[in-house]
Design a protein around this nucleic acid. Sequence first.
DNA 1: ATCCGGTCAAACCAAATGGATAAACCTGCC
DNA 2: GGCAGGTTTATCCATTTGGTTTGACCGGAT
Lengths: 171, 171
Amino acid sequence: MGNREALIQGAKQCLTERGWARTTVRDIATAAGVNHAAIGYHFGSRESLLIHALVEAVEELSEAVSERARGGSPEERWQALIDTFGTHRPLWIAQLEAAVQAEHSPELRERLALAQRQGRAGLGGSVPLAVLSGLMLQWLIDPAEAPDGAQVALELHAQSTADFHARSREA
Amino acid sequence: MGNREALIQGAKQCLTERGWARTTVRDIATAAGVNHAAIGYHFGSRESLLIHALVEAVEELSEAVSERARGGSPEERWQALIDTFGTHRPLWIAQLEAAVQAEHSPELRERLALAQRQGRAGLGGSVPLAVLSGLMLQWLIDPAEAPDGAQVALELHAQSTADFHARSREA
DNA sequence: ATCCGGTCAAACCAAATGGATAAACCTGCC
DNA sequence: GGCAGGTTTATCCATTTGGTTTGACCGGAT
């Protein structure tokens, strides 16, 4: 593995362990087992490297999610997706960090917008994608209170009923 | 307004304009019209101030959301909630930043977990909360592609039908 | 063997950063 | 007036930071 690849790996590791704000060029270089001057050589700047790392992580996550988006009952599918919060935790954290940094980097925002369109296509709508990323937020903050696949499937099913009730109440 | 309050306001402003990673003590002090030594005096450290600011923002957002979570048809309610992405954009950005920083601050995570429980109660379940925060992510990254209230209500309703189809396909 | 482009690392640097210090500044009270 | 409390500011400081420079290194082509 060349230094360039090692740096991206190290950056991904630092992003999940310390987050963008707390990651220094020396942290990344140490994690990668490389001199920190290599960052300037290969990427020009710390920010550029971090964005590269985030983009790569987001793409990996996209793939992992789309693999689990099809097959089985809704409950099973939701559970499989929810399980990725644990199995792919670093990628999900990167995804979250990417969303934050996208507010300050048009390039990153563009990449995320693309991944989002793919996500909508893979999951079959804006709402399933919203549910998935929203559940991720809940799971990261308080896994004990986050719902499982059965609960999600149940609530989604109950939603149309609730809607109906709300409509009639409104009349 | 005392310096302490001014600092929290300035911190909130910096958090939305530059994000946690790019906000320095001097940025905050300038935004607040205050000497940056006041941060040490009132909060002890930059991090402590930023966390205070995030917590305050999250609480403001909680309130704004719960005000709009009731009344009207589902479509109207969803639209009212989606509208807050624009009207309360700074607070939503703070919420997102808070979720990221919660990974590195147990205190902040605790506060967010509380707000999350309130959110579930106010919106009537884990899934509505997930939908709302997931939509926020979509809207921040690509407002043009994010769905409106009608679309969300429609997809939510269609969800149970889709579930049914999936179940029968599975058999 | 030598040259050469690309890669790497040790040392260096200026600037920025978070925080500490200590002196001024109020404001209410005796 | 003058004292005492908390508050605010100007200034200082050590450290960290991102980035650059310079020379070594390496593999392949000549």
